[in-house]
C-alpha cells in the first residue's frame, strides 16, 4: 500500500507539487497522467526517497521514510532518463544493479537471466549498451529496475522516445507484471498508455491532482458527450427526428448515449453513407479540466 497525503515540494519560486494526495492499494496499476512539468517525476522522486517533501506524508508498505534501505529494497524504479552504463554490456548493467540491491551468487545469476529474458535482450546480453537501439536501451532500463524482483514498481515515462514495436513490448511487460500482482505507479503523458494499462488514473497539472478515478469514471465525470457525424445517401424525408441540424446530407450532434440516437436516425427514411462516432477519452477529460491539450 502506498499512501501520500498533502505532499508539497517547490524548487525556488516554482511550486512543483502542491498538496498531492492519493492511495494505491497492493496490486493496482496507478497512473499519473499529465503534461511535462506537471509534477509527476517530482512526486515519484519523493516517493522513492530522493527528494524530501516540504510538507505532507508518505507511507510505503507501512514505512514512513522511503529513504530507508529496507524500503528501497522493495522498490524498483525505472527512471525517465536512460540510466545505464554504455560501455558495459547489457548483462553487466543488470548484474551491477542487482548487486546494488544485495543480490549475489546463484540468485543474482538467476535474476539477471530472468530480467534479460523479460526485456527480450537475452541474445544481445554480451553486447555493449551503446550499441543498443533506443528501444532496447529503454527495455534494459526496465530490466535493471526489476532485477531484484521488487513488490512495488515506479515507472517514470517508460516508453519515452521508443519505437512502436518496443513500446508494445513494454506494454506487454507491464501487463505481465500486473498479472503477477505487482503494485505499479506509472507516469506518462500519453493518454493511450494510461487508458490501456492503468486501473486508476490521477490527472495532474501544475503540481496538483485535478481528478482521480478509473478511466471510465473520469470520462463519465469529465469527458462530456460523444460527437456523432452522419452522412446520408439522400436527404431524409422526415427531419423532425434528427438530433441535430441537417446541412445538405450531413448531420452532426453530441450525445451522452450515442446508440439510442443512432437508432432513431435509422427511422428517418434515408440510408447511412458514412458514420463517425467520436467517444470522449482522457485527452477530452484533460481538455475539459485544464482548457489545454495534453501535448500543448
Amino acid at each position: 500500500m502506498i499512501r501520500i497525503t498533502n505532499l508539497r515540494k517547490s524548487f525556488g519560486s516554482l511550486l512543483a507539487v502542491d498538496g498531492v494526495s492519493f492511495e494505491i492499494p497492493p496490486g493496482e496499476t496507478f497512473g499519473l497522467l499529465g503534461p511535462n512539468g506537471a509534477g509527476k517525476t517530482t512526486t515519484i522522486n519523493m516517493l522513492a526517497g530522493l527528494l524530501r517533501p516540504e510538507a505532507g506524508s508518505i507511507e510505503i508498505n507501512g514505512a514512513a521514510d522511503p529513504g530507508r534501505a529496507e524500503v528501497r529494497r522493495g522498490l524498483g524504479v525505472a527512471p525517465q532518463a536512460l540510466s545505464l552504463y554504455g560501455e558495459l554490456t547489457g548483462q553487466e548493467n543488470v548484474a551491477f544493479f542487482g548487486r546494488m540491491y544485495g543480490l549475489a551468487g546463484e540468485r543474482l545469476k538467476e535474476r539477471v537471466d530472468w530480467a534479460l529474458d523479460f526485456a527480450g535482450l537475452t541474445s544481445r546480453r554480451k553486447d555493449r549498451v551503446r550499441t543498443y537501439s533506443g528501444g532496447m536501451q529503454r527495455r534494459l532500463n526496465l530490466a535493471c529496475a526489476l532485477v531484484h524482483d521488487p513488490e512495488t514498481i515506479f515507472l517514470d515515462e517508460p516508453t519515452a522516445g521508443v519505437d512502436p514495436q518496443s513500446r508494445n513490448f513494454i506494454f506487454e511487460n507491464i501487463e505481465a507484471l500486473k498479472a503477477r500482482g505487482r503494485t505499479i505507479l506509472y507516469t506518462t503523458h500519453y493518454m493511450e498508455e494510461a487508458q490501456r494499462l492503468c486501473d486508476r488514473v490521477a490527472i495532474m497539472d501544475h503540481g496538483r491532482v485535478l481528478a482521480l478515478d478509473t478511466v471510465p469514471g473520469l470520462i463519465a465525470a469529465h469527458g462530456g458527450s460523444s460527437v456523432v457525424e452522419v452522412e446520408f445517401d439522400r436527404p431524409p424525408a422526415d427531419t423532425s427526428a434528427l438530433p441535430g441540424k441537417l446541412e445538405g446530407t450531413r448531420v452532426r450532434f453530441e450525445a451522452k448515449e450515442p446508440l439510442p440516437a443512432l437508432a432513431r436516425l435509422g427511422t428517418c427514411g434515408a440510408g447511412f453513407l458514412h458514420l463517425q462516432v467520436q467517444q470522449p477519452d482522457l485527452e477530452t477529460v484533460f481538455l475539459a479540466l485544464t482548457g489545454r491539450r495534453l501535448r500543448d
Binding site: 534501505a69 546494488m100 540491491y101
Partner: peptide, 14 residues
Amino acid sequence: VGGTFHRLRLAPIA
C-alpha cells in the same frame, strides 16, 4: 548528468 548517479541513489545504499 547521465542519470546513473540518480539510479544509484535509488538503490538501498548510502
